[in-house]
Design a protein around this nucleic acid. Sequence first.
RNA 1: CGGGGAGUAGCGCAGCUUGGUUAGCGCGCAUGCUUUGGGAGCAUGAGGCCGCGGGUUCGAAUCCCGCCUCCCCGACCA
Length: 584
Amino acid sequence: MPVLRMSTLFLRTLREDPADAEVPSHRLMARGGYVRRAAPGIYSWLPLGKLVLDNVAAVIREEMGRIGAQEMLLPTLLPSEYYEATGRWTEYGDALFRLKDRKGADYALTPTHEELFTWLVKGEYSSYKDFPVVLYQIQEKFRDEARPRAGVLRGREFHMKDSYSFDIDDEGLQRSYDLHREAYVRIFERLGLSFVVVSAQSGAMGGSASEEFLAETPTGEDTFVRSTGSDYAANVEAVHTPAPPAGSVEGLPEAQVHRTPETPTIETLVDFFNAAGLGRTFTAADTLKNVLVKTREPGSADWEVMGVGVPGDREVDMKRLEAALHPAEVQLLDEADFEAHPFLVKGYVGPNALLANKLRYVVDPRVVEGTAWITGADKPDHHVMNLVCGRDFTPDGTVEAADVREGDPSPDGQGTLYTARGIEIGHIFQLGRKYTDAFELDALGADGKPKRVTMGSYGIGVSRVVAAVVEQCHDEKGVVWPREVAPADVHVVGTGKGEQIDVALRIAEELEQRGVRVLVDDRKGVSPGVKFTDAELLGVPTCLIVGKGLSEGRLELRDRASGEQEEIGLEEAVDRVASAVAAG
RNA sequence: CGGGGAGUAGCGCAGCUUGGUUAGCGCGCAUGCUUUGGGAGCAUGAGGCCGCGGGUUCGAAUCCCGCCUCCCCGACCA
């Protein structure tokens, strides 16, 4: 790479934040001249930005190469047929950029490439001996986001690495998936990111069928939970509630029905029982709240009503419930549904009306045998106390529907949970045969019979990764690039009106000969303050200053991350910088 | 789609309430002189469809009507 000279570099740093920039990565990438907005959610990458983007891509290429993946480049403009073949032309909805050619035929700007990759493999490969194969590309993707935001973090055009694995059996798919998972860990570690891997789905679908890589930052769009006592991390939807040990029902007090007028809420109910002189105090966690929903399996026209029991101190988290019941649709009951099921007394629904009427009743995992509850007595203004699970009612199973809270015990038994935010930078997914079925991609097996190929898809948001790195690696002065991502290894700054700039250029050339990537500030007539401030904003890891000490043969070596600075001799400068670069 | 805010020079903004010089300030840019270790000083200068369309008026950046766009929060989406 030639020496980058600030005197001619296409770069103008901004003294002020652009009015629309809110998050640190957006502000700093704009001020540092890395990107410029062209349209909502669409950005130009200026020279320094392009270098950074390429550095991220280079790391990805190396690690993809290590797992045997082969890079290709596919069209970004595709006729609708490809997406119609899999139903995504309609499924994708408004997020798909659509356009017509001069003949009126429908086209899309590609959002992902499952279809074309599958089609290509079908055209070239036909024997089990050809598999497995992993193909990928790094290119622009298009999604007409309802609300692009935060600069390149969520754009309508963005750079993505997408790879696809093709295997002839499930074991092969699992291997391809595991290889990607390992490659992703290496990639994000090399990029200097602090990240977690979370299961993207609930247990029902199988824990490893899909995982997200989240870069932890306060500005992230995705909420996840982690543990204070271990490295456990998961999407809220995937958190399993640890069940307390089941107890004996022997000797527990009899269930008693109480008239409880004017107790429409859990709070009023608890107050009522605490005022009833029963010799103990109750909390909302002693009550069992029964929420009624209806579910519909895909392809079915009929809704099934079911009851969901959760401790009264918790709300039903519809996202968690939906994930638990996936792929069924879930809705709350409306008035008409209550009218159709008169045995459901709104506000006073208890387990037994549900069970007696053969409706499915599932409960929170905390509701185990031997636990006693205050819950609805299935008639207006009445609740039942000491209704014991396993004695007075037996649920049809458990469900992860209750909300997850800070302080809840971690599912792995170590520590408690707290919520964190992250940016989704990678997603690995065992697709299975959705696309190979659509295109009838078969391989002839050893037994001479065709076998349907199974797929995985694996994405990394390359441009988003750049922003995620900035989110994690910056201070109040600017970016602090990890070396592998930085647009240069060293920023040589010449200050003064003497020979400093000439010397800076000479040192820059020598460093370049040694394989060091160099940005040199050779601007004339720019004051030292401006140059230092720009260097800090741009965030190159090592800074070498050729300034006022030059006449005595002294230069200054600064480390952007630590802020440490050291005087060094002119003669040793090249060696010192080279070794600083080599040390990372 | 719901809520909030904003469109004035490359960037950041004031002016609008109460219509009236030639539309202004800072940064940046150009030229000259001075300055050179933490966003320099002086002087001169270039740069504007005041988002678009219509209306009111002798006169509109400013008032009225309509439209468009953008930003932020949420919903949706991955």
